[in-house]
Design a protein around this nucleic acid. Structure first.
Length: 917
RNA sequence: GCGCGCGUGGUGGAAUGGCAGACACGCCAGACUUAGGAUCUGGUGCCGUAAGGCGUGAAGGUUCAAGUCCUUUCGCGCGCACCA
């Protein structure tokens, strides 16, 4: 660092961080907690303010729960993206405390996960050791930024006391089923068995098939590089989200969570939460609800029938062929001898293709005729059955009726293979070409639905199909059940065991709650077993896996998402060992305040749109159904922070060498400047590039703030002393006393007086209060900071700086740059012989509109809509006066000379426009 | 291909339909200085000596008045992508 420090942040920041730690300044208080009389919260609200009566009677301070997405503590440490969201929430937390709220602002660690396990594979170091070291590093980095977390509530998903309850919640899922009649989860004890379920084995099998957590063989994504299966949400463009490895689909027996049962509620409840439209749309698209009909087609000369799903049953008369996905189970049965070779070679060709290639919408259609025919149920027509890879086995029934006239894909396919195209929909605009017309219109060539508009035609034909037993209305979803088991070591073991029934079949059973937690075994070798079958590493711990009674433990572990599905609930009651969260506590933090359910504000990156945010909503709804939480939704308001790019405008990455390390920035400019810069860059939600020059800009601003308050001569004395003392830094400072001794050499500027503020000074201050307050409410941090810069630029010109004005300014600055604000706040009070009240809990200043009223205002004058001059008029001037003053302006007269004023438009207190001609 | 968002100085970005470019970076000039990569002061959209003219991706429209509203179009970003 070659330049002179703008102000001694290296002493101020550790000093106040230590002070906050010792005072537990940011403790959030649960119902019934007695607040120590010497805690600043008690000074503001009273020691008994959180008593049971106060909470029940609505007299307790209002709660505000403001949450960050907790990080995965990676070995790389914090990157500059983390503190962006964290700073925003910290500012709002501090603002809300000043406004009188009981603010819950916690932090924790999403600490199960693959990197620690992969490091263990490489080095043999146990993931717990790696994880602990990484958490320590993250803690150090986060604490050095001065965030106002309540650290007494810190949680890590890898803590035994935490994942015990993750396993407990899994048991709740396992022991519940979704009752379609009540549309909610219930205990499996309420399942009614069908009459043919007679034996215990039958009943068990039936019950197991209904559970919210079930074991089934289904096509899943297998990643051989990672040695584990993955959920749909973890696969992006045919590659694993983690590591970007190829994945393949294969049928495997796995644990699955029945999230599809909640598809409709997950959709509907998007309406009651305050999320961005784009995020809601991402979830909506992922769930992919689509209404239509299932129609059964008979196969000619065969006992088989094929069901198809269509959203356009009104076009059934136009179905001129049928297409099955190459994997459809009936393909072999339908295929004729002459087509056998062609069909088999096509199937083989397709199976060798990656999913990415198959689903490329731009590629040319391919397919093969099976030789078989189906009967169109509405008109008895024979239609050929083809197979083609544009029909997906995993969606709908894996088969479609093709209506080439009114479906783009079918149209393309029919043209290529010369299949008949029959019009059955007439576009409303007669000029529109009907071939390839896919919108709504009027049915034609369609027998009994002719002349009906599309919506009516759909209804009528669906009713007809139902009456004839040929089909029914259906709703299809893209959402699949959540694949919930992984072949990993570093995850929560399942609280499940496997036993053998009387017929020699394996069946699973849950451990009882009092056997939790299930700890993972000790292992030396964490490697995934090579091969193309999942082989959980836990299987190597034979002693652990095989229980004395002959049963075997479930060897898979839960995915990383399990822990993050409920951490926001554990924060509420982080240490309790008697439940996953206390009832009263949950009710206070999640529900108090009424119509806005859940966490008041949740800030994090957009990358979790269909992962964590969907999974957590699902778990929350199950817990809600079981009466374990009090709101239908976990997160009321959610804001996605934008990405911070490197200085080159590219995404930050090691390989590009454009990664900014927060530690470096902190060492050079301090935490306050770092925080301020991240907020000053631009709107929180926007993607924006990093610029070190910009950090210097806000750093200079803080320097100007500092110099506005302190005596320059005393600062010179301090600098000399500091040089003598060997240039103390936060790391090498020998003692806090030494630091404070040095800091005490700095005195307050003589211009700060207890004289009354002038009207102009009050106006400057109150304009700033207004702007900062409104911008905080709207989360417009960048413009709030610019308002404070305006204040400081103005205050720099003052001879006398009234202490009351300067104190209020520090309150505005405090949420953004808390360390410098605390230091100057303390100094102001000390200099004037006062005991400084806690800045954190000092009531947020209110702006006085009366002070902003002017006696005279400037008005822009336009001539024919073009700005020409500004005039000064009394604020209450009538229109005639304004017009006269405007016309008297020389500049205006330049443009009105020789012309007549035909019209005058005056917008009170805004502008005047003279129309001349 | 479909959906959403965004296009404003050299740069990041400000502007309830009412003085475009707040604030900051950068740049220019000056002051202080042995020095300046510190600090302070002033300037800085473009063209023009000036008066003035032009200017928010492009083209049209609504309006007394448009960066803002409407239509078309181009470009960028994000999401979805053969979902029947």
């Amino acid at each position: 660092m070659s330049q002179r420090r703008q102000y001694p942040f290296h002493l101020i920041e550790p000093k106040w961080q230590k002070n906050w730690d010792e005072q537990q300044t940011f403790r959030a208080w649960n119902p019934n907690e007695e607040i120590p009389a010497n805690h600043p919260f008690a000074a503001r609200h009273g020691a008994k303010s959180m008593s049971g009566e106060a909470v029940a009677g609505g007299k307790a301070p209002k709660k505000f729960y403001i949450l960050d997405m907790f990080p995965y503590p990676s070995g790389a440490g914090l990157h500059v993206g983390h503190p962006e969201g964290y700073t925003a929430t910290d500012i709002l937390s501090r603002y809300r405390r000043a406004c009188g709220f009981n603010v819950l602002h916690p932090m924790g660690w999403d600490s199960f996960g693959l990197p620690a396990e992969q490091y263990a594979v490489k080095t043999g170091q146990h993931p717990r050791v790696t994880t602990e070291a990484n958490i320590n590093n993250f803690t150090r980095q986060i604490k050095s930024l001065g965030f106002s977390y309540d650290w007494t509530r810190e949680v890590a998903t890898t803590d035994v006391g935490y994942f015990k309850w993750t396993q407990w919640i899994f048991l709740k899922l396992y022991n519940s089923w979704f009752n379609p009649e009540t549309n909610k989860a219930e205990s499996v004890d309420t399942i009614k068995f069908p009459d043919d379920c007679k034996t215990e084995d039958h009943k068990r099998a039936y019950r197991d098939s209904k559970r919210l957590a079930y074991n089934a063989e289904l096509p899943v994504w297998w990643c051989s590089d990672l040695g584990t299966v993955l959920a749909n949400e973890e696969v992006i463009d045919g590659k694993s989200e983690v590591g970007n490895f190829p994945v393949v689909r294969k049928p495997l027996r796995q644990w699955v969570l029945r999230i599809t049962a909640y598809a409709d509620r997950l959709l509907e409840d998007l309406a009651i939460i305050d999320w961005s439209e784009s995020l809601k749309k991402q979830q909506t698209d992922w769930i992919g609800r689509s209404e239509g009909a299932e129609v059964e087609f008979k196969i000619q000369n065969s006992k088989f029938k094929i069901a198809v799903f269509t959203t356009r049953p009104d076009t059934l008369f136009g179905a001129t062929y049928m297409v099955l996905s190459p994997e459809h189970p009936l393909v072999t049965a339908i295929t004729t001898e002459t087509q056998k070779n062609a069909v088999q070679s096509y199937q083989k060709e397709i199976s060798g293709k990656s999913d990415r290639d198959r689903t490329d919408a731009t590629k040319e259609k391919t397919g093969v005729f099976t030789g078989g025919y189906a009967i169109n149920p509405v008109n008895g027509e024979q239609i050929p059955i083809w197979i083609a890879d544009y029909v997906l086995a995993s969606y709908g029934t894996g088969a479609i009726m093709a209506v080439p006239a009114h479906d783009e894909r079918d149209f393309e396919f029919a043209k290529k293979f010369n299949l008949p195209i029959i019009q059955v929909v007439q576009p409303n605009d007669p000029k529109t070409e009907w071939q390839g017309f896919t919108d709504d219109g009027v049915s034609v060539n369609s027998g009994f639905i002719n002349g009906l508009v599309t919506s009516e035609a759909k209804k009528k034909i669906t009713t007809w199909l139902k009456e004839k037993g040929l089909g029914k209305k259906t709703i299809n979803y893209k959402l699949r059940d959540w694949l919930f088991s992984r072949q990993r070591y570093w995850g929560e073991p399942f609280p499940l065991i496997w036993k053998t029934d009387t017929a020699g079949n394996l069946y699973h059973e849950a451990l009882s709650e009092n056997m939790l937690p299930v700890l993972p075994p000790q292992l030396d070798d964490f490697k995934p077993t090579p091969g193309d079958r999942p082989q959980p590493p836990l299987g190597r711990a034979k002693d652990w896996a095989n229980l004395p009674d002959g049963s075997i433990r479930e060897l898979n572990t839960m995915p990383q998402w399990a822990g993050s599905c409920w951490y926001y609930l554990r924060y509420l009651d982080a240490k309790t060992n008697s439940s996953f969260v206390g009832k009263d506590v949950e009710n206070y933090w999640m529900k108090a305040g009424g119509d806005k359910p859940g966490v008041d504000l949740y800030v994090g990156g957009t990358e979790h749109a269909v992962l964590h945010l969907l999974y957590a909503r699902f778990w929350h709804k199950v817990l809600f159904d079981l009466g374990l939480v009090s709101t239908a939704e976990p997160f009321f308001k959610l804001v996605n922070q934008g990405l911070i790019l490197g200085e080159d405008g590219q995404k930050m990455s090691k390989s590009r060498g454009n990664v900014v390390n927060p530690d470096d920035v902190l060492a050079e400019y301090g935490a306050d400047a770092f925080r301020l810069y991240e907020m000053f860059m631009g709107p929180l939600q926007d993607t924006k590039p990093w610029n070190t020059k910009g950090v210097e800009g806000v750093y200079r601003f803080l320097g100007r703030v500092w110099r506005l308050f302190v005596d320059e001569k005393s600062e010179t004395a301090y600098e000399q002393a500091e040089t003598l003392a060997g240039n103390l830094t936060a790391e090498n400072a020998k003692s806090a006393e030494k630091q404070n001794e040095l800091l005490d050499l700095i005195l307050l500027d003589g211009g700060i007086t207890d004289a009354a503020a002038t009207p102009a000074q009050l106006k400057t201050l109150h304009a700033c209060i207004k702007k900062v307050t409104e911008d905080l409410d709207g989360m417009r941090f960048n413009t709030a900071i610019s308002a404070m810069m305006v204040f400081i630029n103005e205050a720099n010109t003052w001879q006398n700086k009234p202490v009351t004005v300067m104190k209020t300014f520090l309150q505005l600055l405090a949420p953004f740059a808390p360390h410098i604000a605390e230091e100057l706040w303390a100094r102001l009070h000390a200099t004037f012989g006062q005991v400084a009240p806690s800045l954190t809990y000092a009531p947020w200043p209110k702006f006085d509109p009366a002070l902003l009223v002017e006696s005279e205002i400037e008005l822009p004058v336009q001539v024919n809509g073009k700005f020409r001059d500004t005039i000064k008029v009394p604020v209450d001037a009538d229109n005639a006066t304004i017009e006269a003053v405007a016309k008297a302006s020389e500049k205006v007269q330049l443009f009105t000379a020789g012309k007549t004023v035909k019209k005058v438009i005056i917008v009170p207190k805004r502008m005047i426009n003279l129309i001349v001609g």
